[in-house]
C-alpha cells in the first residue's frame, strides 16, 4: 500500500469524525437552550458529553496515530465518560432534593412547549 494513500484515508476518517463531533457538540448547546426545564436540559447536555467528546477526541486519536498523544486522549475520554454521568447524577439528585419537580405526569401531554 502507498503511504500517501493511507495518510489520505486516515485524514478523511478523522475529518469525518471531527465534523460529526462538532455537530453533536453544537446540538447539545442548542438543546440546552431550547429545552423547557432542568431535567430535559440535562438530556441535551449529555449528548455533548458523550457523543460530542467521543467523536472529537476519537478524530484526534486517528490523526495522532500510535503515539503518546493518543494514549493521553484516550485517558481524557475515559475520564470524561466516567465523571460526566457522576456529576450529572449529583446534579439531578441535588435538584430533586431541593424540590425541583421533574414535571412529568406519567401520561401528560407535552403540548405546551414550543
Amino acid at each position: 500500500m502507498d503511504q500517501g494513500l493511507i495518510n489520505f484515508v486516515l485524514d478523511i476518517i478523522s475529518w469525518i469524525l471531527l465534523t460529526a463531533g462538532a455537530f453533536f457538540v453544537l446540538v447539545g448547546g442548542v438543546g440546552a437552550l431550547r429545552m423547557p426545564n432542568l431535567y430535559t436540559r440535562m438530556h441535551a447536555a449529555s449528548v455533548t458529553d458523550t457523543m460530542g467528546a467521543a467523536l472529537v477526541l476519537g478524530g484526534m486519536m486517528v490523526q495522532a496515530g500510535l503515539s503518546l498523544a493518543t494514549i493521553k486522549l484516550a485517558a481524557i475520554l475515559l475520564f470524561l465518560l466516567i465523571t460526566s454521568p457522576t456529576s450529572s447524577y449529583a446534579l439531578a439528585h441535588a435538584a430533586l432534593l431541593a424540590g425541583i419537580k421533574p414535571d412529568a405526569g406519567r401520561a401528560a401531554d407535552p403540548e405546551g412547549h414550543a
Binding site: 430535559t40 441535551a44 449528548v47 421533574p102 414535571d103 407535552p110
Partner: peptide, 20 residues
Amino acid sequence: SSLEVTRIVLNPKLPIKPTV
C-alpha cells in the same frame, strides 16, 4: 439514543414527553 435525542432537539416542534 444520541441520534434520537439529536432528532428531537433539531425538530422545530420539540416532541418530548418527559417520563419518570
